[in-house]
């Protein structure tokens, strides 16, 4: 019996600043970028690749010979990006391009700050204000008018500009050796509950605990399932369960960690409601943590009704009922 209402869904955001250790070859590349220099690697066949691959794209040999290339290059191919996506180098329409920098033999992928470009067009590096962010130090490329863009504080002929005619319009910077780059990754998803779980969640919003019975094995599942894990068929017949049961087993969480939403220490317990055939994890409060035990009889402590939503969080925690503990034999098969 599945509700005719559509399944519930809600945003799920994943966000982390990854720390990328670079190793020698990529570390030198990133350090070069922080100094406003572009380094390529000489491959096994003598070609110069930018960015420098750590291992040769043909032979897999480690590539350690880095050479400086120019900061001006030629567009090999391009594609318009009329609607930039989050995280891309520019927020207004731009073009992606593969750019063969002067002195390099193979092109790199980067952005060009122009709504249209042309194959064969000359483009020049535009540096970010910040440094130490690896490839993002190279903010994007701009069409090269041969004049420079003033990024070198008006000075031309910066030191250390290598072969290939970098036009000398950017002054190198002093920079620390870059060994690690931070890469933020933020992704947005829409997480959906199954039709069966949605019915259960809507029940919780009304203060009811709705399990479902598997038509094949007759076990009562809470939450109900899109597929009974042992029979592979959806659970069907609704079974309303009481908000009391027992603790089968538990642990006491003492460890803090990133993203934690409950302050330790807390008791995370498997609660088996009377009439259910499977336990679920919840919190047990209302007595000292060291008094929580296997077989303890507990009941739900609901949040105030005006705080209810379609979530098991409507039950703030479970608390001891004071009834005698359940005998071990009655729950040994649920461990």
């Amino acid at each position: 019996m599945t509700s005719s209402l559509p399944p519930l869904s809600a945003p799920l955001d994943i966000e982390f600043d990854y720390t990328r250790s670079l190793g020698s070859t990529l570390g030198r590349f990133a350090t070069g970028l922080a100094q406003r220099r572009v380094l390529g690697a000489r491959g096994s066949d003598g070609r110069v690749h930018v960015p420098p691959p750590e291992y040769d794209p043909g032979t897999g040999a480690p590539l350690t010979e880095l050479v400086e290339v120019g900061q001006v290059g030629t567009v090999v191919t391009w594609a318009a990006q009329p609607q930039p996506l989050e995280g891309q180098p520019l927020r207004h329409p731009f073009c992606w391009a593969m750019i063969r920098l002067d002195g390099a033999d193979t092109p790199l992928v980067h952005a060009v700050d122009a709504p249209r470009v042309a194959t064969g067009m000359r483009v020049r590096a535009h540096w970010a204000d910040t440094q130490g962010n690896g490839i993002r130090d190279l903010a994007y490329f701009v069409p090269d008018d041969g004049q420079g863009d003033g990024q070198g504080d008006g000075q031309s002929g910066g030191q250390g500009i290598g072969q290939g005619g970098g036009r000398g319009d950017v002054r190198t910077r002093q920079a620390e050796v870059v060994t690690t780059v931070t890469t933020p990754i933020r992704l947005r998803y829409r997480h959906s509950a199954s039709p069966e779980e949605s019915r259960y969640l809507r029940g919780l919003a009304q203060g009811r605990i709705l399990g479902q019975r598997c038509p094949a094995c007759d076990k009562v599942y809470l939450p109900p399932r899109g597929a009974c894990p042992t029979d592979g068929v959806p659970t069907v017949d609704e079974v309303e369960l009481p908000d009391r049961g027992i603790v089968t087993t538990f642990c006491i969480v003492n460890v803090p960690f990133l993203g934690q939403r409950i302050t330790p220490p807390y008791v995370a317990a498997y609660v088996l409601l009377d009439g259910a055939d499977i336990a679920f994890l919840h919190l047990v409060l209302g007595c000292p943590a060291d008094e929580v035990r296997m077989g303890l009889r507990v009941e739900a402590a609901w949040k105030p009704r005006d705080q209810w939503g379609t979530t098991l969080e409507n039950i703030d925690h479970f608390r001891p009922t004071g009834e005698p503990d359940a005998p071990y034999e009655t729950y040994a098969g649920h461990l």
Partner: peptide
């Protein structure tokens, strides 16, 4: 290290290949 931080998307990359 050198490409993903720019977030080039598959349609844009395919455009580079197509051209």
């Amino acid at each position: 290290y050198t490409v993903a931080p720019l977030w080039p998307d598959p349609v844009s990359l395919a455009g580079l290949q197509a051209r």
